[in-house]
Design a protein around this nucleic acid. Structure first.
Lengths: 243, 243
DNA sequence: CAGATGTGTTTAAGGTATATACAGTTCGAG
DNA sequence: CTCGAACTGTATATACCTTAAACACATCTG
């Protein structure tokens, strides 16, 4: 972050967009940036993002760590490629009918699926994003396309997109935080602490007693989408509020 | 993450809650976990989270890196303390009137302020959260207290809390991504790419032309809160939908 | 006034990314 | 056909990082 490698921003772009001229001399490359990224994704899926090291990825291919640098400028760019790889399957809103709410819902669900399949995505995109690859832009395009029939202005569409994309991230984080036993442990440990300090957190204590933190049958994505899209619909119905 | 240090979960708790018996023998400690955390926060604020190393923090106190381990079990716990430190000023919803929307809005604004002052907070809390300190629980308590007059059920209050807290994070991320010149560069580079691939991203191209990505005078937090809380109000007005 | 119990330092081990120099391979131009 | 340019992959080395372990010293308690 503070390092501000910045290397060559353009190199990163060329890589993400696959815009680099193939060399003609020299030995045939045994790898591709895409294969490397795919291997890194596998590691991250299985063992978490921290387990992805140049060394580990390289060993998977039976080459030395430095070999990867022939294909990828550095780890940051590799991570960008991982994101791009995981977003390969860009949704098409037109397959989800013409109702903007259904289209947005479909987009959000697809996005949530990706996050569920690749939990590290959340942490990766939480840090500074340098640039977007074609697939990332594709998802953005799809979201805006989903919103197009709504009758919102361009600026409003953008604002709503931010809201919905944020909701997906929120839900993904919720999912990641509360895996089974972790939740168990949290409840017991925090419960114990709360008992000892009930007076400091009166509302929370009451809320827990009232079951606010019990397992919730309602899908948080559905709940969030319903509230947000209801709010947007209200905005559409009330032109007075629209700047 | 995959490392799963786990060290001693209880040690972390004791640290966060200040529940450790002071030693009586030996030399007087020259530091405290709190002072260490404060120094780390300063570094993170000034130079980014990556700049926070045990060494750098220690040098600031004129001691060796290992000295810090007398006060803090490890870096993970230090980061937890940093979060706790930054959340020291827990809001009190009762000062924001009795209207639940105003109270929630006040809470969200306060939270957004903290995120703006300490951008690293976003990245830190995006990773696995182990436990919450008293201040973190205080903020949670405050949010639920803000929602209490709404008439929502406990479960609903929790769901809405997640939504609002998520919105704050979304906005914070938006803020972090788009600092001045970064936005400039993004616009020029991405604009160039889009020109070259306009056919692949028709909606996006149109949206940009329509000004969807132009500087927006509307505060994204206000916009998001308005939509979400409108949606929640609608839920309150329509008891049929409430499971 | 011991000795137990702290603090802080030094040393070192095992990670990480990656710069640099080099060896070996392959194509293409003369 | 050959030689050099261009390329791949490796080995080495640097500069970080966290943190374990052994040690010297300070301080309170019995």
């Amino acid at each position: 972050m503070a390092k501000e490698k910045a290397r060559d921003l353009r190199a990163g772009i060329a890589l993400l967009w696959g815009e680099q001229d193939q060399p003609t001399r020299g030995p045939k490359p045994s790898l591709t940036p895409q294969r490397i990224a795919a291997a890194a994704v596998e590691i991250a899926d299985a063992e978490g993002l921290d387990a992805v090291s140049m060394n580990k990825v390289a060993v998977g291919f039976g080459v030395s760590a430095m070999a990867l640098y022939r294909y990828v400028p550095g780890k940051a760019e590799l991570v960008e490629l991982m994101v791009e790889s995981v977003l390969a399957d860009v949704p098409d809103p037109s397959t989800a009918g013409t109702d903007w709410r259904e289209r947005v819902t479909a987009w959000a669900r697809r996005s949530a699926e990706v996050h569920r399949a690749h939990p590290w995505l959340l942490a990766v995109t939480a840090m500074r994003r340098q640039l977007m690859g074609p697939n990332q832009l594709g998802w953005l395009d799809a979201a805006l396309a989903a919103l197009e029939p709504s009758g919102l202005t361009a600026a409003e569409q953008h604002r709503v997109f931010v809201l919905v994309a944020g909701l997906v991230r929120t839900v993904a984080q919720q999912d990641a935080d509360f895996d089974e036993q972790h939740s168990q442990e949290w409840n017991s440990l925090t419960g114990e602490l709360l008992d000892r300090h009930a007076d400091r957190f009166p509302t929370l204590t009451r809320a827990i007693a009232a079951g606010a933190f019990a397992p919730d049958p309602v899908d948080p994505l559905d709940f969030g989408l319903a509230r947000i899209l209801d709010g947007v619909q209200l905005l559409l119905d009330r032109p007075t509020d629209r700047a």
